[in-house]
Amino acid sequence: MNRSTSSPTTEPRWLRRLLIGAALAFIAFFLLLPLAAVFVEALRHGLDAYLNALREPDALAALKLTLLVAGIAVPLNLVFGVSAAWLISKHDFRGKALLVTLIDLPFSVSPVVSGLVYVLVFGAQGWFGPWLIEHDIRIIFAVPGLVLATVFVTFPFVARELIPLMQEQGRDDELAALTLGASGFQTFLRVTLPNIRFGLLYGVLLCNARAIGEFGAVSVVSGHIRGLTNTLPLHVEILYNEYDFVSAFAVATLLAMLALLTLGLKALLEWRHGHQLAARARH
């Protein structure tokens, strides 16, 4: 008999191969091809052109600004994330479910709207616009606006990673520390923080990637002033719209490499410390 009995819980080999092939083709076409395009387009006119594009003062200014904005926004969200996760995982109170939902709210708002809300509050025609102009304080079309918009779009990242992790870990460790005489602050620093350090790192990693790459929200509040309020993603757009494709893609490779680095670190964290992360967070 040449009919092989197939396992009851899997598909025949030919079907398995077909499905794997289809999935891989889909991923190659939709994920790998665009990634490859970034690097190929950037090097279209050779390595020198590529490196020259990266040495442009405007590109360097954009890089600095991007790091500055992320450097402010990420710590702010880190503090909030830890605070919210402590509140939600270690305490019982009414309205907890509502609070969790509200923390996630920025994920369901268009990035453009995330920028718009700050224009409405701080813009020239906004609530505080006249007062700000009077006192010569610039928020919109300036660095504070970029930071605010970035904080908004990356708001839930750290909290979302920590809340399920700290809920899984329970409260016994903290209570044990308290019975042993530790103060609240000692308990957090010496017991909770070591327990969540990898989850925290994971959340910060994702938060940082989004903070650096954010485009829509930042675009609305930036004003696109070259060398002043242009982050890297915005600089890519300007170069592209000026038909300076090589430069646009050259700057884009920086962002793409950062994305790959993020994915690598993320995979490393999942591999080495998977048990100390919340059951695979979705973002």
């Binding site: 209570l175 044990a176 530790a182 103060s183 000692q186 017991v191 070591p194």
Partner: peptide, 26 residues
């Protein structure tokens, strides 16, 4: 009070000795 939790609640990142020393250390 000396409280022993049902699942012990030992601090996973501390050595056994540091677990025992924690109360005095705090």
């Amino acid at each position: 009070v000396g409280f022993v939790f049902q699942h012990y609640a030992l601090f996973r990142h501390m050595r056994v000795l540091d677990n025992v020393a924690f109360g005095l250390d705090c």
